[in-house]
Design a protein around this nucleic acid. Structure first.
Length: 220
DNA sequence: ATCTCGATAGTCT
DNA sequence: GACTATCGAGATC
C-alpha cells in the first residue's frame, strides 16, 4: 500500500532525454500512476525493454507510420499500441523529437487500486489484498506480469496514445519511493517476443524482484 | 515447471 | 496475405 499522502510528482521531461538504455534502467522502481475513472492506480515498474533508433526490433525501424508517430515526437509521452488482435502495450518515448526511441513497460508490482485492477483483468477469486509475500507475488504476476496484462489492469488503451506523462493529469510516472533503491542490481537479458535484434540485452529487471513477467527469471 | 497452440484484428507489404 | 514488443488453456514431463 501507499503511505497516506505519499507524493506522486511526475518525473520531468529531462529524465526522458537521457540515453534510452539509461532511461530503461532508471525506470525500474519508478511508479506508474493512472488517475482512472475507478480511482487512483499505482504500480512499481519492475521490468522494462529499450527500443532504439536503427534497432530492427523497433516499430520505428522502417520509418514513421500512423501507428508509431508518437515515437517520433518529443520525449515524455506515452506510446500505446494495440497488437495480436487483443492486447495493448505501453511505452515511454525517449530522445529528442525526430529520434524514434522508447522504453516498453513489461511488468509492475501493483501498489494501489488492486480491486479495480483485478476487476479489469477479469479476476474475482481470491484476495488481491493478501499481505503474504507469496500471495502478493502471485497476484502481481496475474495483474501486471506482462505488457498486455499491465495495460489491461491499468485500463490503458489507444485513447491514451500520445499523452504527456510529465504532468499529473491522467497518466504519469513518479520517482521511486525509497532512496536506497539505487543499490539494487540491474539485470540485462534478451528482449522477449521479438525475432530480430535478439542479440541485444536490452530487457531490464532488478535482481531478486518477485514481480517480473517470467517467474524466477530475476531470482538468479 | 515447461511446452505448444490457437485466438483475434490492426498494420504493413 | 503475412506478421505481430501477447496471453491463457491444455498437454506433457
Amino acid at each position: 500500500m501507499l503511505r497516506d499522502g505519499e507524493r506522486l510528482q511526475p518525473l520531468p521531461r529531462d529524465f526522458y532525454l537521457q540515453e534510452t538504455l539509461t532511461v530503461a534502467r532508471q525506470l525500474l522502481n519508478c511508479l506508474l500512476v493512472h488517475a482512472s475513472p475507478e480511482g487512483l492506480l499505482v504500480g512499481r515498474i519492475s521490468e522494462t525493454e529499450a527500443y532504439t533508433e536503427g534497432d530492427p526490433a523497433s516499430h520505428a525501424y522502417r520509418g514513421r507510420t500512423a501507428r508509431n508517430a508518437v515515437m517520433f515526437g518529443p520525449p515524455g509521452h506515452a506510446y500505446i499500441y494495440f497488437t495480436y488482435g487483443m492486447h495493448h502495450c505501453m511505452n515511454l518515448v525517449t530522445a529528442q523529437a525526430g529520434v524514434a526511441e522508447a522504453v516498453l513497460l513489461r511488468a509492475a508490482e501493483p501498489l494501489e487500486g488492486l480491486e479495480p485492477m483485478a476487476a479489469r483483468r477479469g479476476l474475482t477469486v481470491g484476495n488481491p489484498g493478501d499481505t503474504e509475500p507469496k500471495a502478493r507475488s502471485r497476484w502481481g504476476q496475474a495483474l501486471c506480469g506482462g505488457p498486455g496484462r499491465l495495460c489491461q489492469a491499468f485500463g490503458l488503451d489507444r485513447t491514451l496514445d500520445g499523452i504527456d506523462v510529465t504532468v499529473a493529469d491522467r497518466l504519469w510516472i513518479a520517482p521511486p519511493r525509497y532512496a536506497a533503491q539505487d543499490q539494487a542490481e540491474v539485470l540485462a537479458t534478451p528482449r522477449i517476443g521479438i525475432t530480430r535484434g535478439t542479440e541485444q540485452l536490452w530487457r531490464f529487471t532488478l535482481r531478486g524482484d518477485l514481480y517480473t513477467s517470467r517467474k524466477g527469471q530475476s531470482a538468479l
